[in-house]
Amino acid sequence: MHPLFHYINKYAIISEEDFKVFLSHFTHKKIRKKQFLLEEGEISKHMAFIMKGAMRQYYIDEKGVEHIVNLYIENWWAGDRESFVMCTPSIYTIDAWEDCEVLLVSKENTLKLRNQCRAFNELLLKLDELNTIATQKRITYSISFTAEIHYKYFVDNYPYFVDRFPQHIIASYLGITKDTLSRVRKKMLKQ
Rank of each mutant, 00 (worst) to 15 (best):
15 S>T: 13
144 S>M: 12
34 K>M: 09
107 K>F: 12
24 S>F: 08
78 A>P: 06
52 K>N: 14
80 D>P: 05
15 S>F: 09
157 N>A: 08
69 V>M: 07
86 M>Q: 14
117 C>Y: 00
172 S>W: 09
155 V>T: 08
27 T>I: 15
6 H>K: 14
179 D>V: 13
40 E>P: 07
42 E>F: 12
167 Q>W: 02
78 A>K: 01
32 R>S: 15
77 W>C: 06
127 L>T: 02
10 K>H: 10
163 D>V: 03
20 K>N: 08
184 V>H: 02
58 Y>T: 05
68 I>Q: 12
55 M>P: 02
19 F>R: 09
37 L>Y: 15
186 K>Q: 13
31 I>S: 04
45 K>S: 13
70 N>G: 11
168 H>D: 04
158 Y>F: 15
171 A>Q: 02
43 I>D: 03
121 N>T: 03
62 E>F: 07
6 H>D: 10
92 Y>E: 00
97 W>Q: 12
19 F>S: 04
20 K>P: 01
121 N>K: 06
55 M>Q: 09
172 S>V: 08
97 W>A: 07
36 F>C: 06
125 L>Y: 08
78 A>S: 13
59 Y>T: 03
8 I>V: 15
165 F>E: 05
22 F>V: 07
109 N>M: 01
48 A>D: 03
123 L>W: 10
95 D>N: 11
183 R>P: 01
10 K>F: 08
136 Q>W: 05
14 I>H: 10
169 I>A: 07
190 K>Y: 00
46 H>M: 09
62 E>K: 15
15 S>I: 07
181 L>W: 03
119 A>Q: 08
122 E>T: 04
178 K>S: 13
52 K>A: 11
82 E>V: 12
43 I>R: 11
159 P>I: 05
116 Q>W: 00
13 I>M: 13
137 K>H: 08
181 L>M: 08
139 I>F: 10
38 L>S: 09
154 F>L: 04
178 K>I: 06
142 S>K: 10
61 D>G: 04
65 V>Y: 08
45 K>H: 11
46 H>S: 10
156 D>S: 15
98 E>A: 11
147 A>Q: 06
145 F>R: 15
103 L>Q: 07
122 E>Y: 08
150 H>T: 06
110 T>L: 02
16 E>P: 05
110 T>Y: 04
119 A>L: 02
167 Q>T: 02
186 K>S: 14
190 K>A: 05
133 I>Y: 04
89 P>R: 03
158 Y>S: 09
158 Y>L: 13
105 V>C: 07
43 I>A: 13
82 E>Y: 08
88 T>E: 00
112 K>A: 09
